[in-house]
Design a protein around this nucleic acid. Structure first.
Length: 285
DNA sequence: AATCATAGCAACCGCGTCTCT
DNA sequence: AAGAGACGCGGTTGCTATGAT
């Protein structure tokens, strides 16, 4: 491994290719090139002797850092967060595609944002399952947020239409909001309507299997902020399947205070073992 | 104040796809 | 039509800043 890296570095030296952080002077050269010829012919930058960088590296630098319309140094807003979450559910890890819906964000931005988020989720889940964590030790790769298809109501076209008609009007707390799938039109073609509030499951939502609801909620925007999602969920009452209730409680789908789900015993230690691997987007129908 | 853990970001790599000749 | 080079994408790595202990 180390040997391979050393050899690669040696090869690069032979080819006189520079790597690593960009200097201001290099940026200037690149910007001038784009001003003259536009964002293309990346490899000619090196062949003309303007920079010792590969065309690939030049393109990346331009796309991710030098492009004039970038929102550099700005954290993702709640709206952007919702957008990413929903589009990731729709498209999977198609970061470039998702980035087209976000003004001033690059695929790298989206990818980094998502990966940070996944790490946080993983850590929080791991923490909640810590007492017997050795049993369900999985990598973050398995921690994709479930697609919102996961929630059956998303497929209810009538509800979708109703939601579309009601647009993004403020909904009184406690009233069910049915999310509408994002229309597959990039930002430059159609103003994007951000994913709506998602405080509760619909009343007709079927009983949940162990672990499902918790995981589904992890996909909600800002779930991780504000004391583990309390702000997002409020004191929402959620139906729980009988199998998930404490023994001796009613058989009916009683509502359970969300706070009780945040006890030390939650989520169940075998949470991850309950989750099927997600289908790839191409298999979603 | 020093050390460690974590988050966030920038950049690289491999590979698939596109375009040009 | 086929091959070569350019381009674009997703995954991964490494560095730095920041916060916690």
């Amino acid at each position: 491994m180390m040997e391979g890296k050393r050899r690669m570095a040696h090869d690069d030296e032979l080819r006189d290719i520079k790597k690593g952080p960009w200097k201001v002077e290099e940026d200037e050269v690149l910007i001038n090139h784009v001003k003259k010829y536009g964002p293309r012919d990346w490899s000619s930058i090196r062949s003309k002797g303007l920079l010792r960088r590969t065309g690939k590296s030049c393109r990346l630098r331009w796309v991710n850092k030098l492009r004039p319309d970038l929102k550099t140094g700005m954290k993702f807003s709640a709206d952007e967060e919702r957008t990413v979450i929903d589009l990731q559910a729709q498209f999977g890890n198609k970061w470039a595609k998702i980035a087209t819906y976000l003004q001033g964000r690059t695929d790298n931005d989206v990818k980094n944002f998502w990966s940070s988020r996944q790490k946080r989720l993983a850590r929080i889940l791991h923490t909640s399952t810590a007492p017997s964590s050795s049993k369900s030790h999985k990598t973050t790769k398995h921690l994709q947020t479930p697609p919102f298809d996961f929630i059956p109501s998303l497929k209810a076209t009538k509800l979708e239409e109703e939601f579309a008609a009601s647009s993004m009007e403020t909904v009184p707390f406690g009233e069910v909001v049915y999310p509408s799938p994002i229309s597959a039109v990039p930002v430059e073609q159609q103003p994007y309507v951000a994913f709506p509030q998602f405080p509760m499951l619909p009343p007709d939502y079927p009983p949940l299997l162990e672990g499902q609801d918790f995981i589904g909620r992890l996909g909600a925007p800002n779930f991780l902020d504000d004391e583990l999602g309390h702000s997002a969920l409020g004191t929402a009452q959620v139906p729980i399947a009988p199998s998930f209730q404490a023994s001796g409680t009613s058989e009916s789908h009683d509502a359970v205070d969300i706070d009780s789900l945040m006890d030390d015993d939650f989520p169940p230690i075998d949470l991850f073992d309950q989750i099927e691997p997600l289908p790839s987007p191409s298999h979603w129908s």
